[in-house]
Computed example of a mutant assay.
Amino acid sequence: MHSIAQTATAPSTLPEQAITASLTAEIMHDPDDGQVTLVASSQGNQGDLQVVTVDQMLARVTEARTQLDQIEHLAKVFQAQTTLAAVLAEHGARMEEWNPDTAPSDLRDKFVAAVQVIDGQIVVVVPLGQDPLLRAAVVAELISDVKAPA
């Protein structure tokens, strides 16, 4: 039997983060000579508006798509962490993070979460640094299967 060591209560607040994605693309007619140009800007005030080639525009699109993917992930992490906090509060449970580096090698990569009722309180133990999306799903499922004794 393996023992769990080095637990710490999980932080209850989310770290502040900001990710910005901005890209404006426009086909314009040059007011001087009427030539059609492709222009791009990545600043809200269009302070960096400039004529670009199609390849340059596509490179900016790829960069913006990466930023949008990061924003989507940030939203999903926020949802997972706030849902997790609500589930823990609803069940009067607490969550502790465990440093998997202290585990025997046969458990290190396999441990996802454990739950136990201690002195009438549900205690969930999760690996330190676990993906928040996985954590929220696993903890919610474990807690739904456990009822703390009254």
Rank of each mutant, 00 (worst) to 15 (best):
V52K: 08
T82H: 11
Q67I: 04
Q56W: 11
D55A: 12
P11V: 06
E97N: 09
E141I: 08
K147F: 05
L14D: 10
L23S: 10
S144P: 06
Q17D: 10
S3D: 05
A140F: 13
F111K: 08
F78T: 04
V61E: 04
P11Y: 00
A40E: 13
R135G: 00
T20L: 10
A85C: 06
T83I: 13
H2P: 13
L142A: 08
S144K: 11
P100R: 05
Q17F: 00
R108A: 09
T83G: 14
L23G: 01
N99K: 12
S41K: 09
A59W: 03
S12R: 00
A103D: 15
S12Q: 09
D119E: 08
L107G: 08
A93E: 04
L14A: 04
R108N: 04
R135I: 02
T62D: 15
W98K: 11
R108Y: 12
D101A: 14
A75F: 05
P15E: 12
V117W: 05
V87D: 12
A8W: 12
A18R: 12
P31D: 14
M1N: 03
D48N: 09
P149V: 07
V39H: 05
D69P: 03
V139P: 07
K110C: 02
P132C: 13
Q116A: 13
I122Y: 10
Q81R: 04
A40Q: 13
T24L: 02
M95T: 01
H29K: 15
Q130G: 03
T66G: 14
A148R: 01
H2A: 15
V117I: 11
D101M: 14
E90K: 03
D48P: 08
K76D: 13
V126Q: 04
Q116L: 02
H29P: 03
